[in-house]
Write a protein that binds this DNA or RNA. Sequence first.
DNA 1: AGGGTAGATATTGTTCAACAATCCTGCAAG
DNA 2: CTTGCAGGATTGTTGAACAATATCTACCCT
Lengths: 243, 243
Amino acid sequence: MSSSSEIRPPADPGTDTSWLRAVAGDAALFDRSSSAERVADVLRRRITEGALPPGTQLSEELLKEALQVSRNTLREAFRLLTHEGLLVHKMHRGVFVPDLTEEDLVDLYRLRRVLECDVVRSLDELPTEWLQPLRDDVAASEAAALAGDWVAVGTANMRFHRHLVGLADSTRLDEITGRLLAELRLLFHVIATPQALHEPYIARNRELLELLEAGAYTQAADQLHQYMLDSEAGLLAAFRARA
Amino acid sequence: MSSSSEIRPPADPGTDTSWLRAVAGDAALFDRSSSAERVADVLRRRITEGALPPGTQLSEELLKEALQVSRNTLREAFRLLTHEGLLVHKMHRGVFVPDLTEEDLVDLYRLRRVLECDVVRSLDELPTEWLQPLRDDVAASEAAALAGDWVAVGTANMRFHRHLVGLADSTRLDEITGRLLAELRLLFHVIATPQALHEPYIARNRELLELLEAGAYTQAADQLHQYMLDSEAGLLAAFRARA
DNA sequence: AGGGTAGATATTGTTCAACAATCCTGCAAG
DNA sequence: CTTGCAGGATTGTTGAACAATATCTACCCT
């Protein structure tokens, strides 16, 4: 045992605390947190999966039995999701899955464009290992495309953008992005043609990644800007042609 | 009575519903909505006033008696404020007034800079009456400065920026800005010298307003960018020199 | 028949009381 | 100085009850 400890260059055995961060990360897998948040997780997955069509009401009575929690806890979960934009609350009427409009779509994309492009433009001297999540996401979307699973392509695409924003290392930006993408996903589910919607951006994600690998951040930001405009236009067209 | 109705150019008496909007606006003063939100309003004011120092715990037992509401309602108000960034929730320990760090400060300003500058840069053909709230805010800050009320100057300043963002006509942007400014206000209260902090920006707000009046949006955006950098630097210096 | 109104019904808003789970404190033991 | 263990305090969660409001239904009137 003593031989292995002597191999490591820095930090004698007693003062090395680097492993603590890893443990702290794993702690989240234990208890996550409260019941309300666990309930919110379940509902969030259902909603973002598109299992609940826009306009659906979430009855307190039914859900409390289905999820085996108290009404108060359920209402707390509702409140959480309402603030994420995944539910809308109408006074004395209940909570509903929102059906977003064209205005919402352009609103969402306006913010995405500004925030994501600024993140990329502000990058500087990025450590190459920070790009690993992006590489994985691109690979995942390409694999899903080969398998013909366009929903998985969309998921990987969203993770790509989430990780992209994560490069800015801003907790608030991460939070905002999470909400924007969650709302965006609500819009995807009213679209009939997921392939036409996601396919063009598999290659563009890879292009973007390669620009980032090369450190061409300004160029990457410009590419992303056009990317966003095209994506918005495509989604808007598909939205107008929905059933 | 009939004479006054005949004076008005459009809308005969039976179909004129314009007064409804005014009534709807006043209704908010009545019942706003739920008890939880009313409780949240009270606490929000207290916190943004700086009455509660960072790190203060808000005890459920004490507050439920002080505010005469049930624990559930109070907890719902806590949840609201937590999502606004005005409280932090620690599992099984309660809610606390957050004490923000330098990292939070630069994080907040990074977002403000990006969002507000983009709002101004994206303006186009702005109707002149939309600027009225900004004119009022500038006037209010100047009047408060003459009266030596630097807290009021800060308040007017914040309203100026809120109204500035409002020009973009984006509900999500308004929401995000509200949260950012609320958090920023938490930072102000740990600063000892409000005058030095707010005074320089009275004139710069007026400059900015005049550029907007003139339709020089690009120039206004550039001015605002430097404004934000200076403001961040000043606040950061004051924060490091705090008691 | 159409429109409006009043009551019935169902759902949400709010409160209360109780118990379970967890954290903090202080103290004793190694 | 650290570890382990009561005790006390606070939060987390539940269930039931009542109040307030929206929706629905049946009825009446013109």
